[in-house]
C-alpha cells in the first residue's frame, strides 16, 4: 500500500489524523469511572460495548479501557450506551 504506483498520478496515502487532531472539535470529554467499568471490575475482558459503538474507533479494549483523547470527537455515544453507566461526559471548558 505504501508503494507509489507509477500508473496513478494522484494517489493518497493512509494516515491517522487526516483532519488533524479531531479531539479539538470536542466540547464534552468522556471520563471513565474504573470502579464501575465492567472489564476493570471483573479484571477480565468483558463488555467492551463502548469500543463496539465508537464511530471513531478511538477506544482501546484492554484492562483498563482507554480512550485516545487526541482524536475522540466527544459525541457521547459511549456514555449513552455504557450498560454500567461508567462513562460520564465532562465539559471541556470547566
Amino acid at each position: 500500500m505504501e508503494k507509489k504506483d507509477k500508473n496513478i498520478s494522484a494517489m493518497s496515502t493512509p494516515a491517522i489524523g487526516e483532519a488533524g487532531f479531531t479531539g479539538d472539535w470536542r466540547d464534552m470529554r468522556p471520563v471513565i469511572n474504573h470502579g464501575k467499568c465492567i472489564p476493570s471490575v471483573k479484571n477480565k475482558p468483558a463488555c467492551y460495548l463502548c469500543w463496539l459503538y465508537c464511530p471513531e474507533g478511538v477506544i482501546k479494549t484492554g484492562i483498563p479501557v482507554e480512550i485516545d483523547l487526541n482524536y475522540c470527537k466527544g459525541c457521547g455515544i459511549c456514555a449513552e450506551e455504557c450498560p454500567a453507566k461508567a462513562i460520564t461526559m465532562v465539559s471541556e471548558g470547566g
Binding site: I16, A19, P45, L49, Y53, P55, G57, G74, G76
Partner: peptide, 27 residues
C-alpha cells in the same frame, strides 16, 4: 457481547477523519 470477540480487531478506518460527531455512517 459474546460474539464481540470474534470481530476482526484490525481498524481499516483510521481515527482523525472528517466525519461529523456521532456519525452513523462512520460507525
Amino acid at each position: 457481547p459474546e460474539n464481540l470477540f470474534k470481530i476482526n480487531k484490525e481498524e481499516y478506518m483510521l481515527p482523525g477523519n472528517r466525519s461529523c460527531q456521532g456519525c452513523g455512517l462512520s460507525l
